[in-house]
């Protein structure tokens, strides 16, 4: 306990390990990216710190177009931070990240054309109806509003299309967020704990959408704590530990609370550090 240092203090600034970590991460990330045309994501040495604490310490991950990757890790290990960096919502402290060849740091607008982010926060307007929320999203995305009714029908919200989102349950809000993704049809889908608050039908709906995207050649990264709902959807799983992306062992899966069935899922080796 005596060695704990609060971020932003002088002692944190002077601690040698922070400077060593920074030097290591900087050296790792000074690697010219090798951009393969079929890579949906090419993350190289991505690091991010909050104050003096490094959450990511040089994460590498390559995801090919058409590949579905599960991302595991304990609470606070940096899964959501990694996803937010890919989605251009957060800037990396070091490292490079490319989405279909576009750099998330310098070509954010191009990246946002490809990426669809499903966060645990719904990102909806309470005082707009379900239909109006989708109409706003379609206008912002530049997609025709004619597809809204089909998207609402698909997520089972047609009967409440003209009701304000304020009265929706969390599950209904999640479904509406999914309808927004259905409208967008992104080439790289980032799903942060997508099965939370979804019933069995909602989970089937989510998996159906992921498979559909897969069939169309899109890629997905799915942050999970329990792998069971994603059975049959993922091509491989990776884990974030100590700020880096690793191949998970059965012991990792068990320690991180994944169900025993999860261990039977394919564990990928391609494209990880």
């Amino acid at each position: 306990m005596c060695c704990r240092v609060k971020p932003y203090t002088l002692s944190a600034f002077l601690r040698l390990e922070n400077w060593v970590a920074f030097a290591l991460i900087s050296s790792v990330t000074n690697v010219a990216p090798l951009l393969a045309p079929d890579l949906a994501l090419d993350a190289r040495g991505v690091a991010r710190r909050f104050g003096a604490r490094w959450v990511l310490r040089g994460a590498n991950l390559q995801v090919r177009a058409g590949e579905m990757v599960g991302l595991l890790g304990h609470n606070g290990c940096g899964k959501s931070t990694f996803m937010r960096i890919i989605a251009t919502l957060l800037k990396a402290s070091a490292g490079d990240c490319f989405v279909y060849g576009s750099n998330v740091k310098t070509e954010g607008d191009d990246v946002r054309h490809h990426v669809g982010f499903f966060s645990h926060i719904p990102g909806l307007y309470d005082d707009l109806s379900a239909r109006e929320n989708l109409a706003f999203a379609a206008t912002m995305l530049g997609f025709p509003t004619a597809d809204i009714d089909a998207a609402l029908e698909r997520v089972g919200l047609t009967s409440v299309a003209h009701e304000r989102v304020r009265g929706f349950s969390t599950g209904m809000q999640r479904r509406l967020s999914l309808a927004r993704l259905i409208l967008q049809r992104p080439r790289l889908l980032l799903l942060d704990e997508p099965y939370n608050n979804l019933d069995v039908a909602g989970i089937a709906l989510m998996n159906g959408f992921i498979r559909e995207l897969n069939a169309a050649g899109g890629a997905a990264i799915v942050v999970l704590h329990d792998l069971v709902p994603a059975q049959g959807v993922l091509d491989r799983t990776v884990i974030i530990r100590d700020g880096r992306v690793h191949m998970p062992s059965p012991a990792d899966l068990a320690r991180d609370g994944a169900s025993p069935q999860a261990i039977t899922l394919p564990v990928g080796a391609a494209g990880i550090s």
Binding site: D109, H113, F117, P122, G123, L124, Y125, M140, L141, G142
Partner: peptide
């Protein structure tokens, strides 16, 4: 505040465009 309430600011920043 309207944007922050339901995490809508994040969604707004995710849309492509200037």
């Amino acid at each position: 505040q309207v944007e922050l309430d339901g995490g809508a600011l994040e969604a707004l920043l995710l849309y492509p465009g200037s």
